[in-house]
Amino acid sequence: MKKKIALIMAMMMIPASLMGCGQSAAPTTAAEPAATETTAADAAVEDTAADSGAQYVFLDEDLGVESYAIGFRVGDEELAETVSGAVQALVLNGTYDEIGEKYPDIKDYLCLTADDIDASTLPEEGSGDPNFTFKHGFDLDYPPYSYRQDDASVGGFDVELCQAVCDYLGWGYEPVPFNWDAKDMELNAGSCDCIWSGFTKEGREDDYTWGITYSNNTQGILVPADSDIKTLADLSGKIVGVQTATSAYDMLEDSQKELADTFAELRVYETYTIAYNDLKAGAIDAIAIDMTAGSFLIADDNA
């Protein structure tokens, strides 16, 4: 009896996993060997997507703009200043834009330009203590700022920029991926020296010693292209998904509370991946998300 049930479960899981590969992994990696039927089916899907343009779009109206900055322990002024200075130096020597080029979803939101920077106050290259290792705390679930790359290595805009800062100053670099819900404990307990992971400054001004704001971001509403939702007002009576402990969530609970109250439901997810699958499946009507993460999320389906 036990064995039979096990067998049935196993049989259910195998096709499910194959379908999973076909739906999501195959379009991103054309070189990947896949069953012929699946490839054909995917091609068909891509065709329809191409005909109608993008499958998922952001509403023109946004929820608000926020700034991404580097959070340090309260009182770590000197460290914050050194790191911020190094970031500016990287803007001047072009590294900042170079890294930005690799992340098209972020590029447009980078806010530092050489014109605003006073080169005389910046730390010299190699002026840092070579024995110091800078512990970079970040969330690995947050593409494109910090996430697993296609080769499964740890990367992202923030990771590369932080590495470049350490290289510039002559410090050692130690990545400390953490669980986002435990970020403050990690920082206060000293297992990392900063929170630098698409970290929104607004609403947290007093909770950290802030380093430089290196990127802006806009919180928007993501809907299917064929949705009848065109404005924020259309969200009334709809189900909107959001990831827990994100700025989009904070905004809907705070500055955009009135808007959120018009929703039929604000559904809070552990990760945007699940929320996005619900949107695809039609279980929810829209997702509140920042533009960079949102662009990254829909990139494959809009390709």
């Binding site: 996993s17 999973g20 590969c21 690995l140 697993r148 990690e186 945007y272 990254f296």
Partner: peptide
Amino acid sequence: TLAYNEMFSLAKQIAASQTSFTPFIIAG
């Protein structure tokens, strides 16, 4: 919880970066 990169954490991370459900199925 303590960001030890065991299988499920990796599944979550890869799912986020690939916007795909496949890692969860593999984990399952």
